[in-house]
Design a protein around this nucleic acid. Sequence first.
DNA 1: GTCGTTGCAAACATTTTGCACGCAT
DNA 2: ATGCGTGCAAAATGTTTGCAACGAC
Lengths: 151, 151
Amino acid sequence: MEQTAVALQKIKEQLHVANYKLTPQREAILLVLLENEKDHLSAEEIYMLVKLQNFDIGLATVYRTLEMLTELRILDKVNFNDGMARYDMRKDGAKHFHHHLLCVECGGIDEIEEDLLMEAETIVERDYAFKIMDHRLTFHGICHTCQMRHS
Amino acid sequence: MEQTAVALQKIKEQLHVANYKLTPQREAILLVLLENEKDHLSAEEIYMLVKLQNFDIGLATVYRTLEMLTELRILDKVNFNDGMARYDMRKDGAKHFHHHLLCVECGGIDEIEEDLLMEAETIVERDYAFKIMDHRLTFHGICHTCQMRHS
DNA sequence: GTCGTTGCAAACATTTTGCACGCAT
DNA sequence: ATGCGTGCAAAATGTTTGCAACGAC
């Protein structure tokens, strides 16, 4: 995974700038996140995936690392009303893309990258004098697979 | 509040259809919700507001009622990453309006009613074969008041 | 030696559940 | 008398925190 190494190196620099070290624990967490970028992992899931690699780690460390990465805007903390926070890598350079499709039937979560909100953001900034920095958009509905199953 | 009485009556019928009774506890909760429609109350806040009306109630009842109302789609359960679920009355007839502006500075939450997503939903349904039933859209940013405070 | 980081266990906060009781039909 | 609804307390869940120990510089 050449791609992963590059991303990791870049993150390492971001940590350095912010006066954090890339410890083995943090690296292990980041590797899990990078290799499961589409999966919206929870803290507990990350914890278990790291341990599966025969790497011993404490759950508190996972939480602390995720909090730090969120603060540095390397991760997005997202919430799908399933009782726990989930974490999402911020795509390189993308500031305003990246929305979610949550299937209410199978619980699956898909990501879409299109920027659907350009117009909406213009309206909000203009009409509500609100300075937008970020957003969360999730559509609830039925995914293609589940629709097929019905017919 | 004539308006409130009408809304309450309507909800009572919805409950009946679904084989639930409008008990005094449930009515008290609904009144609090209707009279604080803009406030995104949490379960605990609702609990305390009901008790302030000299009405004795158990916290578990509040949770159970909120869960039921959410299931009946009378309420929306929303999550602003502050550690607890908040509840929002569904506006009469509105299916697809109603978004949020969360100020990252003062923590305030404003509601906006414009439908900003018509076009976006068309795109998603067409390009991703996803049948949309609902959505959650929250903008994170700085509200007008906080912007003023800076200058 | 200093200081950031870790792991553990305890604390914490929110939400859910088991159960006995109450009340309306 | 049946069954839904309630309140309480206990449990469960997800997350945070205090603290002693560790390790890099």
